[in-house]
Design a protein around this nucleic acid. Structure first.
Lengths: 340, 340
DNA sequence: ATCAAAACTTTCCGCGCGTAAAATTATAGT
DNA sequence: ACTATAATTTTACGCGCGGAAAGTTTTGAT
């Protein structure tokens, strides 16, 4: 009782069951008889043994490690989706490990590099996007089943699941045109993420479909400090020609947050109600968007659906099934608040 | 050349150096002769071998794994400090693994539980605080060298490094009193984090030192959704008695962000300049604080110093030195913006 | 050139578990 | 009660590396 169990052999002896059966149990409890399972679990409670994870993974052809890689954890959007993905992995009996590339190509490469030695059963990655080392990632996906999310790299990985960013534009342009002046589009000149391009295209297509001339404003700035880029760009526009419309659709919420700050700094009111105010809308439904002043009208990404697709697609593959859906897109939902 | 190296033995043969020496090199490159080191590193480039991490950790008494645990990654403050801590670990040749308790006591316990099997050389943890299972954490720290940061649990771990939250109150109360009406204090009734108590005490002490009567407003709400709690609480106060002062010091920036949103919703102007406006200040210098409307006056935590202390203290211990400083507090810096 | 210290090689064992093969036992079904 | 099948036990080997022990070579300083 008080004697500590040091390894599986001792635990087998203590529980009165052979070691190979114990081993089977830990690999998959359903492969042992129910009566045996109960005996093991009972012994497990009294003896508090757990197998050595390093010894386990050393010989197993397939570990139960899952790598989860996001481009940036400083962005609460990714923090939230990572949380969701992690939980699903744990529930399925896998061991997720979370990594953030911190917006850096080198870090993304390093993460994959060091991930190799973990012999992961699978990888769930939201790539940096434009800045990713695509060849490196592709090489990795040849060895490890990989599902992409958020940001799509064509022809890489088993599957991609993310938002239908093209549809985002249509959805919000329709709304904005219905309730006021047609919007101009506010974005970074060199967006880190390919989703931004889809969003611009969606905006342009929607405007043209409604018979309006699209107007795109691309501001300087690279990297992942979107709020600051939005603020600087916003100040520049306001201080020079001003916006060509009293309605501004931002490529994402973080840019919009920066733009709202710029408007405030220049005493430019924002919102749909006041005379002389400009309307600002974003995309993502960032956790902070409901606390901007005014609260930000935006398109909500379907966090749940995206993380669910990523995890379930990977597990389907790990269980031997073939993955058929190469690309799955999820619709966004219009979140009406007071900024537009 | 094309033949792949499968293990250390093959790599030893290929590089013309004995396996034990190769083993020594990977444990600590400085323990082998410089000429040998060069030969190994040269072979390493041509053969692209890396030791099996599971086999390595199986026998080593001390792994180079470091657990990094934060209460919530949805909070960019922790995301940022985690990034800082991780990088320092990597630079020192350790393998950090990041975990978030997502504000949940059970998750925090589970993380430590599953961390055990990783045989970590050390643990860097920002505990949940009031809600932590202190006995469990203490038990863990008996086996694994642990440094606490951000949130202090008395008598647990080798050392604690965090902000001098008491000083925060003094610093900002002095400033606010010098430039306008003495502030009231806005906080959660049951703060998740013990720092909140220190901050309140600092506020009260500073007010009394200046000869003013402290006024504390505690709003309902539990958990980690601080912005929403601040917004709801703010609306309640505004809709009932109003604030007892035109200056409100919030226990943290996230509450302040919610309060600013509440003020906006009630057409209550915020800032130091306008007539009839209330001044709002926070504490933390949250990444979003510079983008609120108006930008938030706050006390900046010294991220760098906190993460540096945590990592260096742990490594000092791992290298055999004794740790003497049980508690190290870092001063905050006043960040003057337009909200106050 | 000499010699002790440092670094290296050779040889060996063990870590904790996966897993295969063969023998044994338990289960379920007519 | 009998059998086919599934589950378990016994036995044995191997994974890739850490690390100890003893012998050999290299190094660097006199």
């Amino acid at each position: 009782m008080g004697s500590k169990i040091r390894n599986m052999e001792e635990f087998a002896k203590a529980s009165g069951i052979s070691r190979p059966t114990i081993s089977k149990y830990f690999n998959d409890p359903t492969t042992v008889r129910a009566s045996t399972r109960e005996r093991i679990e009972q012994a497990l409670e009294t003896y508090d043994y757990r197998p050595n994870i390093f010894a386990m993974n050393q010989n197993r052809k397939l570990t139960r490690n899952i790598g989860v890689v996001v481009p940036s954890l400083a962005d609460p959007f990714f923090a939230e989706i990572a949380r969701n993905v992690e939980q699903r992995c744990i529930d399925a009996g896998y061991r997720p490990t979370l990594y953030s590339a911190h917006g850096s190509r080198d870090q993304e490469v390093e993460i994959l590099d060091s991930l190799r030695s973990l012999k992961p059963a699978g990888l769930l990655i939201a790539p940096l996007g434009r800045n990713s080392d695509k060849a490196m990632i592709e090489k990795f996906t040849k060895k490890v089943p990989t599902v992409l999310f958020d940001s799509h790299l064509p022809d890489i990985g088993l599957s991609f699941g993310g938002s239908d960013n093209f549809q985002f534009g249509r959805l919000i342009v329709d709304y904005l045109c219905r309730t006021g002046e047609p919007p101009c589009f506010f974005e970074m000149k060199f967006p880190a993420n390919p989703n931004a391009n889809k969003r611009r295209q969606g905006y342009i297509a929607a405007m043209e479909a409604l018979g309006y001339a699209p107007q795109v404003i691309s501001v300087e700035g690279e990297g992942w400090a979107f709020e600051e880029i939005g603020r600087r760009g916003g100040l520049d526009v306001i201080d020079s020609a001003g916006f060509p419309s009293n309605t501004v659709l931002c490529s994402n919420d973080r840019l919009a947050i920066g733009l709202i700050a710029a408007c405030f700094a220049r005493n430019q009111p924002v919102g749909f109600a006041d005379e002389g105010a400009i309307r600002i809308a974003g995309m993502d439904d960032h956790p902070f968007s409901r606390f901007t002043c005014p609260p930000l009208t935006t398109i909500a990404q379907d966090y749940e659906a995206i993380s669910k697709h990523a995890v379930e697609t990977l597990f389907k593959k790990l269980e031997g099934d073939e993955v058929t859906d190469k690309v799955v897109l999820f619709e966004g939902k219009l979140i009406m608040r007071q900024s537009a």
